[in-house]
């Protein structure tokens, strides 16, 4: 038995090494002064970070990315909350349709989505190809599956339909029951999917590059442009960027842990659980029993 545990230790050790070496390597490279023929850097320096944080282009790119994220995630919350609420509570027969529309983007890669978007918006009545506005629309659709899942499951957990029935029975209007009963109860659930969406859009490159490119330089475009210049500076960008992503996902994990007592909440896992539910109910039943 003991030798088999050693075997598992070796496997996991190799795996962790494979996963962490690129990250650690990039980090060391970003703080390395001279480093070319040794295992560890010969000298360390913070120059690359100082150079990065003095680069106006970096701040501009960061601001543009923030603008896109705030706009599209904000729009998504403002539009999806009432939409999902209304359909769940008042038009439940359309739920299947809403689900299909909301989950479809998950099956379409950005590269395919971009082909159609360019076609629609490069001529005709609305010519917004090449402007940030087309990106906001594309991003709204990109995060749709995550926002839908988050809001839908929050509504289900609090039994929104019964709550609204009760509130209306007691004389509340539809808006009142939404604002004072439903909304305060689902904020934390929405927060998780909002943060997930922010992290997702932060690392979005395909749409940004194909639809707008250098005309509206986001952080990812800036990074791609810097790939061929100084490696140390680019490492510093990668590490700064990745720390922000980690911070975001860290908060998400904390929140999910608090909400569900389930430490491995992942956006991708959630999506798969959706597919599993759809494709083989029996299987999830087996996995569900703990």
């Amino acid at each position: 038995m003991k030798s088999s545990l050693t075997f598992h230790k070796v496997i996991v050790g190799l795996l962790v090494m494979y996963l962490l070496i690129p990250l650690v390597g990039t980090f060391l490279f970003s703080i390395a002064g001279k480093w070319d023929h040794t295992i560890l850097p010969e000298s360390y320096t913070m120059d690359w970070y100082i150079e990065l944080f003095q680069d106006e282009r970096f701040y501009d790119a960061f601001r543009r990315t923030l603008f896109l994220i705030v706009m599209s995630v904000g729009l998504s919350v403002v539009i999806m909350l009432p939409t999902i609420f209304i359909i769940t509570v008042y038009f439940s027969k359309w739920e299947g349709l809403l689900q299909a529309a909301a989950m479809l983007p998950y099956g379409i890669p950005p590269i395919v989505g971009a082909v159609g978007l360019i076609k629609v918006y490069s001529d005709g009545p609305i010519q917004i190809a090449g402007t940030p506005w087309i990106l906001i629309g594309a991003y709204f659709i990109t995060i749709l599956p995550f926002m839908y899942q988050g809001i839908r499951s929050s509504l289900r957990t609090i039994n929104a339909v019964q709550l609204v029935d009760a509130a209306e029975l007691l004389g509340a209007t539809k808006f009142q029951s939404f604002r004072t009963v439903v909304f305060p109860n689902i904020i934390s659930g929405i927060l998780v999917s909002t943060l997930l969406s922010v992290a997702l859009l932060f690392s979005e490159f395909a749409f940004a590059n194909l639809l707008v490119g250098g005309r509206f330089e986001t952080i990812q475009i800036y990074l791609a442009d810097k790939l061929n210049s100084s490696g140390h500076l680019t490492s510093a960008i990668v590490i700064t960027y990745y720390s922000m992503i980690l911070l975001l996902t860290g908060i998400v994990l904390k929140l999910t842990f608090r909400n569900e007592k389930n430490p491995v909440g992942s956006n991708k896992k959630r999506i798969l659980s959706f597919f599993k539910k759809k494709y083989c109910n029996k299987n999830t039943a087996i996995e569900g029993e703990k």
């Binding site: 962790v16 690129p22 990250l23 990039t26 980690l246």
Partner: peptide, 20 residues
């Protein structure tokens, strides 16, 4: 947690990391 963390390391930054 490590798997979750590294699953966010993709796209341009990942390629760059492999290049260096």
């Amino acid at each position: 947690m490590i798997a979750n963390m590294t699953s966010n390391f993709e796209g341009i930054p990942l390629s760059f990391s492999f290049i260096i």
